[in-house]
C-alpha cells in the first residue's frame, strides 16, 4: 500500500538483531527454510554460528527453540505466521508458554501478506490463538521505529513472546526513534474528541490516513496504537471508554478474537462504550492483489473513513 520509507519490518529486525548480537553471545536465530522470506541472510552471513536451520519442520522448530532456551540460549524463531501459530501451536503452548522458556516467536508474512496464496498461507487468526495462551506476550509493531524498540526490549526480556509482522514496506507512523518500549503500553498518537480509532500493526498507517480524511470532514479523530495486544493497556482503554461514546477498532485479523475483541472485553466491563470492529469476516478470505482485498474488506483508509462516518450517524 502507501509507502514512504523503503524498509520492511523484517529488514529492521535483521539490522536490530545484528546490533544486539554484538553484545549478546547467546542470541540465536532459528529458521525453517524461511531465512530468505525473513530477510535474515545478512544476519546469518555475519553470524553463521548463531543460526540454526531446522528445515520445513515448524513443530520441531519450536521444540528445539524451547530446548535451546532451557539450556541458556536466547532463540528468536522465524517462520511464516500461518505455520508458526497453527502447525506449531501445541509446541508454543506447552514447550514455550507453559514451560516458561525464553523463546521469541516471530511470525513473518503475517495477516494477509500472502494474499494471493490463499487461506493456507493467511494468518488471520494468529492473535486469537496466541492471546488465548497464558504466559505469552503478543505484539504487532506498525513501523520501523516501533519495531526497533520492540526488538531491543525483547532481547532483554525473559518472557515468552509472539510478534506478528507483515511483508510490506512500512511507511512511518512515528517521526523519531523510541526511547524505550514498554510492554502493556498503548500510545495515543493523534488527539481528537469525536471518535477514537484503535489499531496496530500494518493497519495503523491506514487508520492514521483515515483519521486525516475524517478531520477534513470536520470529525475530530483520536488514534491509538495498540502494539501490545497482550499484555493490554487496560488503564488507557478504561480512560478511552470514559471519554469516547464511540470506539472503532481496525485490524488485519478475523473479527473473532483479535484486537477488537480484546478491546471490547475490557470496555464492555467498564463503561460499555459502543464499538465497531473492522477486520476480516469469519470466512476464508478472498484472494487477489492485497490493496484490492483490503479495500474489499473495508480496510483501506478511504473505506475506514467512510464506515466510521456512517457509524457516527447511526
Amino acid at each position: 500500500m502507501e509507502t514512504k520509507t523503503a524498509i520492511t519490518a523484517n529488514e529492521v529486525i535483521c539490522n536490530t538483531l545484528q546490533e544486539i548480537a554484538q553484545n549478546n553471545p547467546q542470541l540465536l536465530v532459528l529458521t525453517s527454510d524461511s531465512r530468505g522470506s525473513a530477510s535474515l541472510t545478512q544476519f546469518i552471513t555475519r553470524y553463521p554460528e548463531r543460526s540454526v536451520e531446522l528445515g520445513i519442520a515448524e513443530q520441531n522448530l519450536v521444540s528445539v527453540a524451547a530446548g535451546l532456551a532451557r539450556a541458556g540460549k536466547r532463540p528468536f524463531v522465524f517462520s511464516p505466521a500461518a505455520f508458526l501459530t497453527m502447525r506449531s501451536i501445541e509446541q508454543v503452548k506447552v514447550d514455550v508458554a507453559y514451560s516458561n522458556t525464553n523463546v521469541k516467536l516471530i511470525g513473518i508474512s503475517g495477516g494477509n501478506s500472502y494474499s494471493n496464496l490463499g487461506s493456507s498461507h493467511h494468518s488471520l487468526q494468529d492473535l486469537a490463538i496466541t492471546t488465548a495462551i497464558p504466559n505469552l506476550e503478543v505484539y504487532t509493531p506498525a513501523d520501523r521505529f516501533e519495531t526497533m524498540a520492540l526488538f531491543e526490549y525483547l532481547a532483554t526480556s525473559s518472557s515468552p513472546a509472539y510478534v506478528r509482522v507483515g511483508k510490506r514496506k512500512l511507511p512511518d507512523c512515528y517521526h523519531e526513534p523510541w526511547e524505550n518500549f514498554q510492554p502493556g503500553r498503548a500510545k495515543v498518537i493523534r488527539q481528537g474528541h469525536d471518535v477514537c480509532l484503535i489499531s496496530a500493526g500494518e493497519t495503523l498507517y491506514s487508520t492514521i490516513e483515515a483519521a486525516k480524511l475524517l478531520e477534513d470532514q470536520g470529525i475530530s479523530t483520536c488514534v491509538v496504537d495498540l502494539v501490545s495486544i497482550k499484555p493490554l493497556d487496560t488503564q488507557l482503554l478504561h480512560k478511552l471508554s470514559e471519554i469516547f461514546k464511540r470506539i472503532v477498532t481496525i485490524e488485519e485479523h478475523s473479527i473473532i478474537g483479535g484486537l477488537g475483541a480484546r478491546v471490547a472485553t475490557i470496555t464492555a466491563q467498564h463503561t460499555g462504550t459502543c464499538q465497531r470492529i473492522f477486520g476480516f469476516p469469519d470466512e476464508s478470505a478472498i484472494s487477489g492483489p492485497q490493496a484490492e482485498v483490503f479495500d474489499y474488506y473495508g480496510l483501506s483508509s478511504t473505506k475506514i473513513a467512510q464506515n466510521v462516518r456512517s457509524f457516527l450517524k447511526d
Binding site: 496464496l117 490463499g118 478472498i286 484472494s287 487477489g288 484490492e292 474489499y296
Partner: peptide
C-alpha cells in the same frame, strides 16, 4: 490467475 476474487489462486483449491 491470482487476480481479484479469483478461484485460481496460488495453491490448489
Amino acid at each position: 490467475y491470482s487476480g481479484f476474487k479469483t478461484q485460481y489462486i496460488g495453491h490448489p483449491t
